[in-house]
């Protein structure tokens, strides 16, 4: 049985009328949680994800005593799909969190050295992601909301070695605005920003993280499909080109 989505893709079309290399309508709501140091809700078409930043005083890692710590966590809320049950994150949520973590970390988007407080004390930056409506292209939506939340985030004030909540000492030291563009391979065509229904028909996806200076900061192949090197080159070109559209939104 072929569904309409599949029939459309086979003809180089999409049922929502987009061409293969267009994003759905993207809407960002900033500061959706007043208690968070920074937060953002991203609606990418019907997909909805929320990212929140919280900060705490922590101990630095032994091999980087002068740097703040980044911890990214992602969760598929049971709100988001009939297929998700409450419980600890599954392999897909874990992979998602780790990709977002690498994009933020490897792009050097946060100046972690500026998060040094004093000997043995640094800021820990928590980025918590929750998928609220699972309608496809979660990685791109999650990276976008994380970066938006981070760029909005303020550092809490410290008095007598303790955090004073709701008072701030400045903005989080952000440097870059990396985004990911996930390029999906369908037959010999490439498309971006797939819906959940399209994703079911796609078996090879290349998630590409791109920084403001067009440097690639992360790549992750997903699905059991395969890529030729020449196809990867094409994907990188597309990702670099399309990343600019997303970055403007941060």
């Amino acid at each position: 049985m072929k569904n309409f989505v599949e029939e459309a893709l086979a003809q180089g079309k999409r049922i929502d009328g987009r061409d293969f290399l267009s994003f759905r309508k993207i809407e960002i709501v900033e500061n959706v949680s007043k208690k968070a140091e920074g937060s953002a809700l991203v609606k990418m078409g019907e997909t909805k994800v929320i990212a929140g930043v919280k900060m705490d005083i922590g101990e630095p890692f032994k091999d980087s005593p002068n740097e703040g710590i980044l911890i990214v966590n992602a969760e598929f809320s049971p709100i988001s799909s009939p297929n998700i049950e409450p419980g600890p994150p599954d392999e897909n949520a874990i992979e998602l969190a780790r990709i977002v973590d690498r994009v933020i970390r490897e792009s050097h988007s946060i100046d972690l050295e500026k998060l040094f407080i004093e000997e043995g004390k640094v800021w820990t930056v928590y980025v918590d992601l929750t998928v609220l409506d699972m309608k496809g292209n979660l990685v791109d939506a999650c990276v976008l909301s994380s970066l938006k939340a981070l760029w909005n985030a303020k550092i809490p004030k410290i008095e007598d070695g303790k955090i004073v909540r709701e008072e701030f000492s400045g903005k989080l030291p952000m440097v870059y605005k990396p985004v990911t563009v996930s390029i999906c391979k369908y037959n010999n065509n490439f498309l971006i920003d797939p819906t959940d229904v399209e994703e079911e028909l796609i078996n090879a996806k290349l998630v590409v993280g791109v920084r403001d200076d067009d440097k690639i900061c992360a790549i992750q192949k997903q699905g059991w499909g395969t890529f030729h090197i020449s196809e990867i080159e094409r994907c990188l070109d597309l990702a670099i080109e399309k990343s600019k559209e997303l970055r403007r939104l941060i």
Binding site: E106, C217, I219, K221, F227, I229, I232, I240
Partner: peptide, 18 residues
């Protein structure tokens, strides 16, 4: 010549990736 796993991190130009 088909790639089945690809993971990369760092800061590379497209040419360097290739």
């Amino acid at each position: 010549g088909l790639i089945t796993l690809l993971q990369m991190d760092g800061r590379l130009t497209k040419e360097e990736v290739l």
